[in-house]
C-alpha cells in the first residue's frame, strides 16, 4: 500500500498555489493535512501527478472570533478549533470537533481539506450547511469568491469548486447558541452512519424556528426543509415538537442502505438522532 509517484510542489503563497494548479491542470491536487487524500493514494484509489503542498501557508491557519461572527482559516486543524476559545454562541463548532476521527487525525486534518473532500458525513460540511456558512475560495489570477455552503456540495465527494480554486476560509455569520451535532457510528471515531445537526431559535422555552442538517443520508450533506418547517411553525421546546421535527426529517430522506444497515434503519437513526440533537441543543 505505497502511493503512486507524483511530483511534489511546495506553495509559498495562495496565489502561487492556485496559479500552479491552474497551469498543471486536472492532474494536480492541493495537499493540506492529507488525512483523506493520502489514505486514498496509499490504496492507489487517487493518483494525482502533482501535489501542491499548501501546508506552509500560515496565513490560512487562523481562528478569528468576532462579536457576531467566526472565521476559520482553511488550514486550521480540527484540533486547533477543538482547543480554541470560540466565544459565546459558537460552542457547537468546537464541540463537534470531537466527532472527527481520532486525536492524531485531528492534529493534522484541516478545515479546508475536509470541506473540499466533501464526504457525505463530514462534520465540517454538516456545520457549514447547518449554519449557512460562507466558504471563501481563491482562484488563479488572484480571483476570490464566496460560496454559500448551501450551494457548495453537489454530491458524492463533489463540490462547486473549480479545479484551480482553494478554500481559504469558512465564515459563520451569526452565533448559534442552541445548536448541537450528534452522530452514530459502530466504533468510536468512525465515519458516521448517520449524523444530525440542529440549530434552534428558542427563547423562554419556545421554539420559533431553526435549521436541521443531516449527514450520511445521501451523496452529500443536506439541509431538511421539511423538518425546519416544523420548527418554524413553532411550539414548546419539548419532546412533542422534537419528535414531529425528527419524523419529518426521517420522512424527507431516503438514505441508501446496505446489508448491515438498511434504509429503514438509517431513517430510524435520522429520527432518533434529530431528537437527540434537539434535546442537546435546547439544553445548551
Amino acid at each position: 500500500m505505497k502511493p503512486p509517484p507524483f511530483t511534489y510542489h511546495r506553495a509559498r503563497d495562495v496565489a502561487g498555489a492556485t496559479d500552479l494548479v491552474a497551469e498543471l491542470g486536472e492532474d494536480a491536487k492541493f495537499l493540506a493535512g492529507g488525512q483523506s487524500l493520502i489514505p486514498m493514494m496509499n490504496f492507489r484509489l487517487a493518483r494525482p501527478e502533482h501535489l501542491i503542498d499548501i501546508g506552509r501557508l500560515g496565513e490560512l491557519s487562523f481562528v478569528d472570533v468576532g462579536p457576531e461572527s467566526l472565521r476559520v482559516g482553511s488550514l486550521s486543524t480540527h484540533r486547533a478549533v477543538e482547543t480554541a476559545d470560540l466565544g459565546a454562541g459558537f460552542e457547537v463548532v468546537r464541540d463537534t470537533m470531537r466527532w472527527i476521527g481520532h486525536l492524531p487525525i485531528r492534529t493534522k486534518g484541516t478545515v479546508g481539506g475536509s470541506l473540499a473532500h466533501a464526504d457525505a458525513t463530514a462534520e465540517w460540511c454538516l456545520l457549514a450547511v447547518l449554519l449557512d456558512a460562507d466558504i471563501v475560495v481563491a482562484g488563479a489570477g488572484g480571483r476570490r469568491r464566496t460560496i454559500a455552503a448551501s450551494e457548495a456540495f453537489l454530491g458524492f465527494y463533489t463540490t462547486v469548486l473549480e479545479e484551480d480554486e482553494l478554500i481559504v476560509e469558512v465564515a459563520f455569520g451569526r452565533p448559534a447558541p442552541h445548536a448541537a451535532v450528534t452522530e452514530f457510528a459502530e466504533r468510536k471515531g468512525d465515519f458516521a452512519l448517520v449524523s444530525a445537526a440542529v440549530d434552534l431559535d428558542v427563547s423562554s422555552g419556545t421554539v420559533s424556528g431553526g435549521r436541521v442538517a443531516l449527514g450520511g443520508v445521501g451523496p452529500a450533506v443536506v439541509r431538511v426543509p421539511e423538518a425546519e418547517r416544523v420548527l418554524h411553525a413553532g411550539g414548546r421546546a419539548g419532546t412533542d415538537l422534537f419528535e414531529t421535527c425528527a419524523q419529518a426529517a426521517a420522512q424527507a430522506v431516503e438514505p441508501p442502505g446496505d446489508d448491515d444497515a438498511g434504509t429503514g434503519y438509517r431513517k430510524a437513526l435520522v429520527r432518533n438522532l434529530v431528537v437527540r440533537a434537539c434535546e442537546e441543543a435546547v439544553a445548551r
Binding site: F43, E186, R187, K188, G189, D190, F191, D259
Partner: peptide, 24 residues
C-alpha cells in the same frame, strides 16, 4: 469479512473490517 457477489472482498480496509477500539 465480507464479499460481493463476484467474490471480491468488500471489507479490505479498517473502515469496513471493524476492529474494536478501547471505547468498545
Amino acid at each position: 469479512v465480507t464479499y460481493d457477489e463476484n467474490g471480491e472482498p468488500s471489507a479490505a480496509s479498517f473502515l469496513d473490517y471493524k476492529v474494536p477500539t478501547a471505547c468498545e
